[in-house]
Simulated assay, not measured.
Amino acid sequence: MKALSVTIVFVIIACLLLSAGCTNAPANSAGTPQATMNAAPHPVTVSIANTPVQYKDVNGVRLAYWEWGSGEPVLLLEGFSSMVANDSTTSAPWNETFLTILSSKYHVYAYDHRGMGYSSMNNVTPTIPIYADDAAGMIKALGYDSMNVYGESMGSSTAQQLVIAHPEVVRKLILDSNSYSANIPECQVLHATLLQVANDTSASPGLRAEANANLAFNGTWNGLSGINKDVMLVVGTADIITPQPVSVQMAGQINGSWVVRFKGLPHIGNRNAPVQYGENAVYFLSTNESPLGNS
């Protein structure tokens, strides 16, 4: 158990010009510890297009997944409208440089939510709790009792629900581009986007299902204080979809959690700064103690 209810805020300045490294992050007014990063460039060795799709049957659907690397497992939970093997009309949720860095140290798994990409959908109306149940089922189907989990955007919401409903399957948890609900005033851009897609009859059934699941979800706020895992929240300071104050609010509810804010980066910043995001994830996952030095 973590002995203190304190949130440590780390500010990481992502340098996006000629240098990939970051130094001399200023201390904030509260005097909380600051982190600096000097990430070395990594060659792109992971190719999603050249990675074979595999399948696992979970909770009455067949989920498509991909894997890279070896070592301790990490499950990636993708965001709204994302598909791992994207086509020209969609945006890939996981940058290949980011995947290369993460899979250089860990056995990384990524999959498409039910009804998206190569994954099937049954006649059960999807909800965020069902997506979380799918994540727990996927961990078991892959032969593990538990995994580290990295969720971004809607994947962060799913990961929050996962650790609340199925804490036994989660080791460490990284939440990227976060909100505890799509229906709060701070996330009005997100809410408007979801509402538009939910009402778009030309959108795919899986995409509309994701939009409706997010809109109907009551959120995780009441469950955040009960999370007893090492948790890192990551957000870009230029994120207008899930703005950084929401991640700070959430961190205040999660005992001993980390907040990493990348200056000037938008929603799902690993697409813009994959080296910094990849190195940040590896550092957190490889740290043997919680931020407060309590286990």
Rank of each mutant, 00 (worst) to 15 (best):
residue 110 A to L: 08
residue 13 I to G: 10
residue 43 P to R: 06
residue 189 V to R: 08
residue 207 L to D: 01
residue 101 I to A: 00
residue 118 Y to G: 02
residue 74 V to G: 11
residue 89 T to N: 08
residue 278 G to L: 11
residue 235 V to L: 04
residue 43 P to M: 03
residue 4 L to E: 10
residue 144 Y to K: 10
residue 129 P to S: 07
residue 225 S to T: 13
residue 230 D to P: 06
residue 1 M to K: 10
residue 53 V to D: 04
residue 79 G to I: 00
residue 230 D to M: 14
residue 107 H to V: 01
residue 118 Y to A: 09
residue 217 F to H: 03
residue 144 Y to Q: 11
residue 99 L to G: 05
residue 44 V to D: 10
residue 293 G to D: 14
residue 36 T to F: 13
residue 282 V to D: 10
residue 179 S to L: 05
residue 222 N to Q: 11
residue 97 T to W: 03
residue 235 V to P: 05
residue 190 L to W: 02
residue 73 P to C: 11
residue 190 L to R: 06
residue 269 G to M: 13
residue 112 D to H: 00
residue 172 K to T: 04
residue 38 N to C: 05
residue 86 N to P: 02
residue 115 G to M: 01
residue 258 W to V: 12
residue 53 V to S: 05
residue 124 V to W: 06
residue 64 A to S: 09
residue 31 G to P: 06
residue 47 S to K: 06
residue 190 L to C: 08
residue 43 P to S: 00
residue 53 V to M: 09
residue 36 T to A: 12
residue 212 N to P: 02
residue 88 S to L: 14
residue 152 E to K: 02
residue 245 P to M: 13
residue 68 W to F: 14
residue 106 Y to M: 07
residue 164 I to N: 08
residue 16 L to M: 14
residue 214 N to P: 01
residue 195 L to A: 12
residue 234 V to G: 04
residue 99 L to R: 07
residue 177 S to R: 03
residue 147 M to D: 09
residue 40 A to Q: 14
residue 9 V to K: 10
residue 125 T to C: 01
residue 164 I to R: 01
residue 179 S to G: 10
residue 49 A to T: 04
residue 126 P to W: 08
residue 185 P to W: 10
residue 236 G to M: 03
residue 134 D to G: 03
residue 91 S to D: 02
residue 218 N to E: 14
residue 197 V to K: 06
residue 27 A to K: 15
residue 105 K to N: 15
residue 219 G to V: 10
residue 41 P to S: 12
residue 158 T to M: 06
residue 239 D to Q: 10
residue 138 M to L: 14
residue 107 H to G: 09
residue 138 M to K: 09
residue 91 S to M: 15
residue 27 A to Q: 14
residue 20 A to M: 13
residue 295 S to Y: 15
residue 68 W to Q: 02
